[in-house]
């Protein structure tokens, strides 16, 4: 519980129960007693079986709903509602079809009330950095899945959050596009020294992109293992994939996920 002072996002003994679907049924416990802390500039991946409450954890970090027990802290403040320090990104790109790409990237800035010229300049810069330069005035349906997800990343970065919460952002993409986007993301996170919590089902992705990997058990989800990825090249997943110890980490994680499985079946 004694977390480092420079923790950017912190979950303190968080439990989340959802009201039962039918009357008289037991409430569903999504996650139980999760404590974790992510330091400034650190990228942490969260893996675990489907339905183990990973997304619930993220939604509470974003302030979309409150924990049943425990607290979530971001940048020294307790999270009680959505706040501009945290931005999230999902598997779905969630681009608004009636807005051009540049207008989609500006969405968060516009909601937060920044002035039109300032937000246009910032989105232009992000557009270039996310390799979408020629597509400012295109509409989402004119773009490929990979480009749309790039635009979603640009929209997330546009509000300059301290913490990025990402829920399987690349899982709907084909393998090649995915690798390119992982590299882009890793570079952006490193350049801007962003803190990120990254949910994925892809064990290789989790090792390639993060400083630490947290493994969750089946529902009710809790963290059963923490693995520090002490490999170089966190800003360059292509380089990291070549590393000799890469396979060793992935093998270890595969084994761990099986342990989580057995615990549930006892």
């Amino acid at each position: 519980m004694n977390s480092p002072a420079h923790a950017q996002i912190e979950y303190r003994a968080v439990t989340k129960r959802f009201a039962p679907q039918r009357k008289g049924a037991e409430p569903v416990t999504a996650i139980t007693d999760v404590t974790l802390s992510i330091a400034n500039g650190e990228v942490v991946s969260l893996i675990g079986p489907s339905g183990c409450g990973k997304s619930t954890l993220l939604n509470m970090g974003a302030g979309l709903y409150a924990p049943s027990e425990g607290e979530v802290w971001v940048d020294g403040h307790r999270v009680e509602r959505p706040n501009p320090q945290v931005a999230f990104m999902l598997q779905k790109d969630l681009l608004l079809p009636w807005r051009s790409i540049i207008e989609n990237i500006e969405l968060g800035l516009e909601i937060q009330g920044s002035d039109a010229t300032g937000r246009r300049a910032r989105s232009r810069a992000l557009l270039d950095r996310c390799h979408l330069s020629g597509f400012a005035d295109h509409y989402p349906h004119q773009l490929s899945g990979g480009m749309r997800q790039r635009a979603a990343l640009a929209r997330t970065l546009a509000v300059d959050p301290l913490v990025l919460l990402m829920d399987e952002p690349f899982s709907a993409l084909d393998a090649q596009t995915k690798m390119v986007l992982q590299a882009d993301l890793a570079k952006s996170l490193a350049d801007e020294k962003k803190t990120a919590l990254f949910i994925t089902h892809d064990l290789v992705e989790s090792v390639a992109l993060s400083d630490r990997v947290l493994v969750m058990s089946r529902r009710p989800g809790r963290i059963i293992q923490e693995i520090t990825i002490d490999l170089p090249d966190r800003d360059n997943p292509f380089g990291r994939r070549q590393h000799v110890r890469m396979a060793e980490f992935v093998r270890g994680l595969t084994a761990l996920l099986d342990i989580g499985h057995q615990e549930l079946n006892q």
């Binding site: 974003a62 302030g63 509602r81 945290v86 999230f88 608004l96 969405l107 968060g108 909601i111 937060q112």
Partner: peptide, 20 residues
């Protein structure tokens, strides 16, 4: 999820209606 996206940007109820 679109509504939640707007909410994470701290959108007001009126902004969610007007923009989404």
């Amino acid at each position: 999820d679109l509504i939640n996206l707007a909410r994470t940007f701290s959108a007001s109820r009126w902004q969610i209606f007007r923009m989404i």
